Computed example of a mutant assay.
Amino acid sequence: MRVSHAGTVYDPAATSTAARPAGDRARRIYGPPLDAALVAASLVNVWANVDVEESLAMGCALLAAFALVLRRCLPLAAFLLTLPTALVTDAVWAALIALYTLSSVSRHRVLLGGCALAFSISSFLPWPWTDIDAAELSEAYSLVELTATLATAAAPVFLGQLVQARRELSQRLWEISRAREHEQLLMTQNVLAKERAQLAREMHDVVSHQVSLIAVQAGALQVGGSDPAARRTAATIRRLSTQTLDELRYMVSVLRDSGSRPTELTPQPSLADLHHLVDTSGIGAELDADLPDTLPPAVQRAVYRTVQEALTNVRKHAPGATARVHITCQDGIVDVTVTNTPPTRPALDLPSAHHGLAGLRQRAALLGGNVSCGPTPEGGYRLQVRLTAGSTA
């Protein structure tokens, strides 16, 4: 087992075992019909080569045929049970099939060679061995027949070894492919970690610095200002700047920790924070919410972010307007509607990347909802978001 630099564990043994279920399923599906077909073929071979009246030969042949049922779980035992039929009969299909199966799963070359030799001897020499006459044997059995018998025994051994090598090669290629995919994933994660670290530095060095200056100057204006309205405005700017700094610092820590350990974006807003959000929005806003407290946290965050984005847009694009926030939950659907009146003064030219509504649409889509927005007949604007109450994304 190896541990990567990004903390991801990579175990080659795990990838090896991960490739086996497909083969196991294939063996479970096709194994029994194939075994039945091989037993049937061996019985046909017995019927063609063994006389029914020869009880010993018939018993050994039938034992060999039905022993093929054990060839997957006990290949060596299956071959040993088929060996007597090669000794007393010419029905050797079962023995050859069992020898092939043993060769396809065993790496023991000496064992395979001994099994092939045992089959050759059993098939070549006549039975019973006590009646063998050397002179008759040399006349009846030639070198050609001996060579053919050895070749017959060697063929299933070599074929089984070839199948085993091919299976192992396919497995190895699959493992190499998985290892390369894992390596590519680690490289991608490494690049992303570097980009997050760079983004965290930029946020800390540039954004946090500028927001800190805003908070300091707002605090000075709050203390030294003579106009009560200006002082209240400065207090609001200072409070919002301080809150933004806290969120920025936390986001910087999240970006720096990404990829090294799990992080939770906490604290996250909930429905309990809606009243505070509306009261501190800086505009005249009315909240009408009728929601259960049992909504999933993801839905509660989506509702909060929707109201936050809508009130921010009202403050930026409709100065002097008032807003009404209406939230209901019926039949498992959460409906958030934010409507504002027409602006009473020109809007300030503020920079915007237009990511707010796009982010709301993405968040709503993840929760099985949708977003609709547009101007009202009175000259205001309405934003409506519908979410599925049971979503947990």
Results as ranks from 00 to 15, higher is better:
residue 328 T to G: 03
residue 316 K to Y: 08
residue 102 L to D: 05
residue 98 A to E: 11
residue 79 F to Y: 15
residue 190 N to K: 05
residue 291 L to I: 03
residue 382 R to P: 03
residue 5 H to T: 12
residue 139 E to H: 07
residue 219 G to D: 08
residue 5 H to S: 13
residue 386 R to L: 01
residue 373 C to D: 14
residue 364 A to V: 01
residue 277 L to S: 04
residue 224 G to P: 05
residue 128 P to W: 02
residue 234 A to N: 04
residue 216 V to M: 15
residue 164 Q to I: 00
residue 86 A to W: 13
residue 66 F to N: 13
residue 21 P to V: 03
residue 380 G to K: 06
residue 113 G to V: 12
residue 80 L to W: 10
residue 185 L to Q: 09
residue 54 E to I: 04
residue 234 A to I: 12
residue 165 A to R: 08
residue 297 P to Y: 00
residue 378 E to N: 10
residue 358 A to E: 05
residue 392 T to Q: 00
residue 148 A to Q: 10
residue 22 A to Q: 07
residue 229 A to Q: 11
residue 279 D to W: 03
residue 51 D to H: 13
residue 124 F to T: 04
residue 9 V to F: 13
residue 14 A to P: 03
residue 105 V to F: 01
residue 89 T to I: 02
residue 67 A to Q: 05
residue 21 P to F: 06
residue 203 M to K: 02
residue 228 P to H: 10
residue 369 G to P: 09
residue 62 L to Y: 03
residue 286 E to K: 06
residue 327 I to V: 08
residue 250 Y to P: 06
residue 107 R to S: 05
residue 194 K to L: 11
residue 1 M to Y: 14
residue 286 E to S: 12
residue 250 Y to I: 09
residue 141 Y to V: 15
residue 251 M to N: 10
residue 18 A to W: 02
residue 330 Q to R: 12
residue 380 G to D: 04
residue 106 S to R: 00
residue 284 G to W: 11
residue 269 P to W: 07
residue 391 S to K: 00
residue 222 Q to H: 12
residue 355 H to W: 06
residue 304 Y to V: 06
residue 34 L to S: 14
residue 390 G to R: 01
residue 202 E to K: 12
residue 277 L to D: 04
residue 80 L to T: 09
residue 73 C to I: 00
residue 281 S to N: 04
residue 99 L to Y: 03
residue 383 L to P: 05
residue 55 S to T: 08
residue 208 S to H: 07
residue 23 G to P: 04
residue 69 V to Q: 05
residue 73 C to S: 12
residue 203 M to R: 13
residue 289 A to Y: 10
residue 169 L to F: 11
residue 164 Q to H: 03
residue 98 A to M: 09
residue 8 T to C: 10
residue 348 L to R: 14
residue 360 L to C: 01
residue 262 P to V: 01
residue 115 C to Y: 02
residue 85 T to E: 13
residue 9 V to I: 15
residue 387 L to T: 05
residue 71 R to F: 00
residue 5 H to V: 13
residue 184 Q to S: 15
residue 225 G to S: 06
residue 267 P to M: 02
residue 26 A to V: 14
residue 362 Q to E: 09
residue 50 V to P: 14
residue 255 L to N: 01
residue 84 P to I: 08
residue 370 N to G: 04
residue 30 Y to S: 14
residue 246 D to P: 10
residue 276 H to C: 07
residue 285 A to P: 01
residue 269 P to V: 14
residue 248 L to R: 08
residue 140 A to P: 08
residue 36 A to V: 07
residue 12 P to M: 08
residue 204 H to G: 08
residue 187 M to K: 09
residue 124 F to Y: 14
residue 323 A to N: 12
residue 177 S to I: 11
residue 388 T to D: 00
residue 273 D to P: 12
residue 351 P to N: 06
residue 152 T to W: 06
residue 198 Q to A: 09
residue 259 G to I: 00
residue 214 I to E: 13
residue 248 L to M: 03
residue 197 A to L: 14
residue 29 I to M: 14
residue 56 L to M: 10
residue 308 Q to L: 12
residue 15 T to V: 15
residue 123 S to Q: 06
residue 1 M to P: 15
residue 208 S to Y: 07
residue 280 T to E: 06
residue 357 L to C: 08
residue 40 A to S: 11
residue 318 A to I: 02
